[in-house]
Write a protein that binds this DNA or RNA. Structure first.
Lengths: 69, 69
DNA sequence: GCCATAAGTGCATTATAATGCACTTACACT
DNA sequence: AGTGTAAGTGCATTATAATGCACTTATGGC
């Protein structure tokens, strides 16, 4: 379901050479929570997502859906 | 905290001339949940956010933060 | 092989999102 | 003022996200 967003988190984290432990600590999110998230399990709250995004230099946005073909 | 995203939901809904009740029903989300969300209270799950976004023709995205000045 | 470091998992607990119900505004329109 | 429709709110319950702990894999040096 949310694999895409979770995948982005994961990719971005390793791009920045952060361990799960470091990212979790920096974002103020439980390690267990981040692990679950990256494993594609779970349904994070917007809050959790934004905390992680923040550390990763990302932002959560709502945009008009585009038709891609 | 999430006022921005919630505001977008709200604006988009009225732009589409949907009542809270209709949007909630279409999205498969509880009316109480949507009301709280639009009131700026609450911390919706990604799931909830995506269901609403879907009906509204929006999508949740994670993008590299841009410096706006 | 052994060791260290990072990542993944099962379980139990706590915090809180999601929900329904009943009630209260707020805002037209007549 | 009365009526109807949409929106906001308090409360209680249920579902589930968030968390820590202990343990199990990978993975990469030495």
């Amino acid at each position: 379901m949310h694999q895409e967003l979770c995948q982005i988190i994961k990719e971005r984290r390793s791009m920045l050479r952060l361990t799960q432990e470091d990212l979790a600590a920096l974002a103020g999110v439980g390690l267990r929570t981040l692990k679950a998230l990256e494993a594609g399990k779970g349904n994070p709250s917007l809050d959790t997502l934004q905390k992680l995004a923040d550390v990763l230099g990302l932002e959560v946005r709502l945009e008009v859906k585009r038709i891609d073909r």
